[in-house]
Design a protein around this nucleic acid. Structure first.
Length: 415
RNA sequence: GCGGGCGUCGCCAAGCGGUUAAGGCCUCGGAUUGUGGUUCCGAUAUUCGGGGGUUCGAAUCCCCUCGCUCGCCCCA
């Protein structure tokens, strides 16, 4: 019997872990420089939290969640992390912490979908959430951070798309106007759109079906989409956001009136960053403002904005730096001495490994060479007898005899 | 949930009905009983994802199944 990783899950193997460490380290630096603090929440929560928080009519909740029963409670693996962070925010009374509260997270998310390029069932997101600022300066900071993180990885061909989907009040109005406009032609739309018409009409704007796209471009409907039907405060929020973005030197974005995010909690600002080198699943970052969510989940009315980056998707695009080479490889006739000296050398802050097989010198040295180590520390019979080491520079091939570890470090000190 | 492509050693692969399933990389051993990264030699798949069938004979043909992969949908 052999076992394989489950469909849509992947092992992160030893020779790729440094890519992850690199991404984590670089993004952590950027986010913490902007005073965001890390939060780690559980990977499962009450199913109810996601049903309410993400929205039970969304695909994510309706058909992509891993749920299970435990003593009569329905639990779910998190499909995204905003709901969990908001739950923690409320549970720990974080609204009493100095405002704004800026959090970041990274970790695995789970969605039961058919895997394909850029889409797994267990995948990783890096995200930020900013609580307590209702003005668009917060939207701007958060968007700028996303751009900074992505550009730090040398990602080109990025496209920032931006939209304002209004607040609960004006969005309803907008929805109704859209439905009115679509109604006469509803029968020509695809099956999915006809369902969306009832459940969540704004999602029709997001349909990729060519026919639907054509219909949306027809005069009566397009006017509604481009007609800025959102309320004056929402429009003002958007105008100001654009001013802030300009201050931050973010000017090459596209306003996409048809950008509607798939999660129910967003209001006003929504955005997406896509990369045209990615193929079909081309979103690397998605986010927006979600002012109603905290109170919806039972907390005090608190405005918030955030985003999430798909880590696997950026990994497929970046060329990571080389991993750090090993400092020292110990070659010895005595396994005991090799082990002991590896330990001594590590205590002093060097990385060190040894050959555990007790093979002959040529093989041990071959292993040392292939390990990529900078130095071989040779401890043969003769060295052991005279209490010395032979240090070989594996790059230049030079070697010399030194007296004890102290002599070795003295030698390293000169390099 | 619906479509397309693919499954031969840890990895990359040749083979496309005829007795022992190329080759390369990696790994291991030897040349080299204390000196590597070069070179040379040698070892490693009773078996071709799995199960049936056709045939004197199958990795090669047929059926089923499993897995991977790409796209739709959805999203990070």
């Amino acid at each position: 019997m052999t076992y394989r990783a489950q469909k849509g899950t992947k092992d992160i193997l030893p020779y790729e872990s440094h890519i992850w460490q690199y991404i984590e380290q670089v993004s952590k630096k950027i986010l913490e420089d902007a005073n965001y603090k890390e939060i780690r929440t559980p990977i499962f929560e009450a199913t109810e939290l996601f049903a309410r928080g993400v929205g039970d009519s969304t695909d994510i909740v309706a058909k992509e969640m891993y749920t299970f029963e435990q003593k009569g409670r329905s639990l779910a693996l998190r499909p995204e992390n905003t709901a969990g962070v908001v739950r923690a925010f409320i549970e720990h009374g974080m609204h009493r912490l100095p405002s704004p509260l800026k959090l970041w997270y990274k970790g695995p998310m789970f969605r039961y979908e058919r895997p394909q390029a850029g889409r797994q069932r267990q995948f990783h997101q890096l995200g930020v959430e900013l609580f307590g600022v209702s003005g668009p300066s917060a939207d701007a900071e958060v968007i700028q951070l996303a751009m900074q993180v992505l550009s730090e990885f040398g990602l080109d061909n990025l496209m920032l798309e931006l939209n304002n989907i209004g607040c609960p009040g004006c969005r309803n109005e907008y929805k109704n106007r859209l439905k009115q406009a679509i109604a006469p032609k509803l029968s020509e739309f695809c099956v999915d759109c006809r369902l969306r018409y009832e459940r969540n009409p704004l999602r029709i704007l997001d349909c990729k079906n060519e026919k639907c796209i054509g219909l949306l471009a027809s005069p009566g409907i397009e006017q509604v989409i481009c007609g800025d039907l959102i309320c004056e405060p929402c429009k003002e929020h958007f105008r100001e956001l654009r001013e802030y973005l300009e201050v931050l030197n973010i000017t090459s974005y596209k306003i996409n009136k048809r950008l509607v995010r798939g999660l129910d909690y967003y209001n006003r600002t929504v955005f997406e960053i896509t990369c045209n080198e990615l193929g079909s699943q081309n979103a690397v970052c998605g986010g927006g403002r979600y002012d109603p969510l905290v109170s919806m989940l039972g907390g005090p009315d608190t405005p918030a904005v955030g985003w999430a980056i798909g880590m696997e998707r950026i990994i497929s695009l970046i060329a990571p730096p080389e991993g750090k080479p090993l400092d020292i490889f110990i070659v010895s006739d005595s396994l005991k001495e090799a082990l002991k000296n590896a330990f001594e050398v590590r205590k002093l802050g060097f990385s060190a490994d040894l050959d555990f097989s007790g093979r002959k010198f040529s093989k041990q040295l071959e292993k040392a060479s292939k390990s990529g180590a900078k130095y071989a520390l040779i401890l043969g019979e003769e060295e052991l007898r005279t209490n010395t080491f032979t240090v070989k520079n594996l790059v230049s091939g030079e070697q010399q005899r030194v007296a004890g570890l102290a002599g070795f470090f003295k030698l390293l000190g000169h390099n």
